[in-house]
Design a protein around this nucleic acid. Structure first.
Length: 588
RNA sequence: CGGGGUGUAGCUUAGUCUGGUAGAGCGCCUGGUUUGGGACCAGGAGGUCGAGAGUUCGAAUCUCUCCGCCCCGACCA
């Protein structure tokens, strides 16, 4: 039982100028956090209570799923990262120090990084400690502060430079077992988010810089989310837009028959899809081929899409390049023979085909048939281009961005889209890290194999804010029971009256006995201030004790998520509160 | 990193264009009146106007440099 006057909840009437979204404003107004700098926040006593409840539930669900908690350093020798498979990509977001050894008599100054995640730490550890199949599987986790030098911190705790994350790493003997471990985690995550009281949906996701074979993200639907979720209510299909595919290309597609030979024609000044769609050319976007040039690990490669489609750049990750980027006009011309706007992939028109690392085509271009594309000659295009006859495709793949309204790949119903906040992510990694670091085990046939890994993360601090984003109204936060910093708020309107103070203490003790965390507002404030603050900080159950009510022989009960104020006779107060607490806890 | 914006008291801000003693609301302190949805009256404290340089008799205001913060894009839990 805490007394407000002894505790510390600095509430604000006005929103801070730098807060844009509801949850960020409320975090600050309700006294949960204070900002130190961009993406850096102090968890105030009141906010820390919510964070710790989330942490504890996460710990319990991980333990229940058989994972084992440990604690790893957050200062890492950069060497380890250099040995790992993603130094080039990851160093961008890491806080680094290269003068940690300065003035200490070392000839070479070691470089250190602050850990953004721990694959590079856990894998060498497991390599050293586990060598036998008898010790597998294992899943290690920690709940700790992570550091990422975000290019743009945003929305309070949503994207911070320093944040609390649960990260977990599984090690298995075989691919099948790794899949089992993966789905055990998926189940643990679902239980966790349910306990937190936040609606989250698992969607298929891109593996990004993490690498690995498949992956799910846990998304909290919210308008302000950074991600697009593509989903289908009929089939249950749901995926991050970066990963989503659609059924726009029929499985039994037969390519259109060529209507004639390729024919070059002059298109002076035409360098966009739209310009070719216009008169006098009038070639619809979906009858054009769009040719994009990228540089992958130093070599150019082509991506071909329908003119009407957009590239989903994340999907190029499946091509296996460590680093890739768009090519510049200067890099393009010597290889293709023309500037952007007149590019194509028709056999024989590419100036230097041997320079290319590959020509990758989206499946949907097979819908084109007798299409038009650049001639690799400035100011010229070619028509009657057909995929199998005229293009030298290295590999087909899914590279286009899916739009809402396209058919679901499973049911064929129109796909929908909505925004979401990513609060958790699970990856089946495979052997990418274990091979690199030599994490092998010996099986019962004395054979040596790389361990099969998975890695899993939950943004604990981000989840706290996602809860607020999903559960608030115009007056303030509406905490779900299990994450509420306190469950019961006893507003004592006349704290100077001994009978009111005594009753608050007695009812608080009863609520505590029933399992609730209790806060008593004993401040010498006017009732209006107390009610406004009560709504703002969002404690689920409010009990009001006032001099007026005491004379009538009643107190009041009000749930934050309901409008009604219920008058309760003093004689029933204790039992009604106990019953309310018990019921709310059972439902949560 | 590219584009846009912004910086004045603990918080929200006016004043900047057109240079001339730095203002308000909230919050805070003192006294009084109030007392069931952010009360009222009287008094008070609190500012190197983000930092530095320059122009000027005089700079919050004009110029330059730097820094912080916010928004849009790429990245992420």
């Amino acid at each position: 039982m805490k007394y407000w006057s002894q505790f510390f909840i600095p509430t604000l009437k006005e929103s801070p100028a730098d807060a844009e979204i509801a949850s960020h404003k409320l975090l600050v107004r309700a006294g949960l956090v204070r900002k130190l700098g961009g993406g850096l926040y102090t968890y105030m006593p009141f906010g820390l209570r919510a964070l710790q409840k989330i942490t504890q539930m996460c710990r319990e669900e991980m333990d229940n799923a058989g994972a084992i908690e440990l604690w790893m350093p957050h200062v890492h020798p950069a060497e380890l990262w250099e040995q790992g498979p993603r130094w080039a990509a990851a160093r961008e977001i890491m806080f680094r120090t290269d003068n940690a050894g300065a003035g200490k008599g070392r000839s070479k100054e070691p470089e250190f990084v602050l850990g953004p995640t721990h694959e590079e730490i856990i894998t060498p550890l497991v390599k050293a400690e586990i060598t036998s199949y008898r010790d597998l599987p294992k899943n290690f986790y920690q709940i700790a502060t992570k550091f990422r030098n975000e290019i743009r911190p945003r929305y309070g705790l949503m994207r911070a430079r320093e944040f609390v994350m649960m990260d977990s790493y599984s090690f298995d003997t075989t691919d099948d077992n790794a899949v089992t471990s993966y789905f055990k985690m998926k189940e643990a995550y679902e239980k966790f988010f349910k306990r937190v009281g936040v609606l989250s949906i698992a969607v298929e996701a891109d593996t990004g810089v993490m690498g690995g074979s498949f992956s799910h993200e846990f998304m909290v639907p919210a308008e302000i989310g950074d991600d697009d979720i593509i989903y289908c209510e009929e089939s249950g299909y749901a995926a991050n837009r970066e990963k989503a595919s659609s059924g726009i290309v029929p499985k039994d597609l037969v390519d259109a028959a060529p209507v004639g030979a390729i024919e070059e024609f002059a298109t002076p000044g035409v360098v966009t899809i739209a310009a070719l769609e216009a008169a006098p050319y009038s070639v619809p976007g979906d009858k054009q081929f769009k040719t994009l040039v990228f540089i992958g690990d130093g070599k150019p490669f082509l991506v071909i899409l329908r003119g009407s489609d957009e590239l989903e750049e994340a999907k190029l990750g499946s091509l296996g390049f460590t680093l890739f980027r768009q090519a510049t006009a200067e890099e393009i011309e010597p290889v293709l023979g023309a500037k952007p706007g007149s590019l194509g992939a028709v056999k024989g028109t590419i100036k230097d085909p041997s320079a290319l690392a590959g020509v990758f085509a989206d499946h949907a271009i097979r819908l084109v048939g007798n299409g038009t594309t650049g001639a690799n000659k400035d100011g010229f295009h070619v028509r009657n281009v057909n995929v199998t006859r005229d293009l030298a495709i290295t590999k087909f793949g899914d590279f286009r961005r899916v739009a809402a309204g396209e058919p679901c790949p499973k049911s064929g119903h129109p796909l929908k889209s909505r925004r979401g906040i990513e609060v958790g992510h699970i990856f089946k990694l495979g052997t990418k890290y274990s091979e690199k670091f030599g994490a092998v085990y010996t099986d019962d046939q004395k054979q040596s194999h790389s361990m099969v890994m998975g890695c899993y993360g939950i943004g604990i601090s981000r989840t706290m804010q996602a809860v607020i984003e999903q559960s608030h109204d115009a007056d303030g936060i509406i905490w779900p029971w299990n994450v509420a910093p306190f469950h019961v708020l006893i507003c004592v309107l006349d704290p100077q009256l001994p009978e009111a103070a005594d009753l608050a203490k007695k009812l608080g003790a009863a609520a505590e006995k029933a399992g609730a965390d209790v806060l008593i507002d004993d401040r010498a404030e006017r009732p209006g201030v107390k009610f406004k603050d009560a709504d703002l900080i969002g404690i689920p159950l409010r009990i009001t004790i006032g001099g007026k009510g005491l004379k009538e022989g009643i107190i009041e009960m009000k749930w934050r998520h309901q409008k009604e104020v219920v008058k309760v006779p003093l004689t029933e107060a204790e039992s009604r509160i106990t019953a309310g607490v018990t019921e709310a806890a059972a439902k949560a």
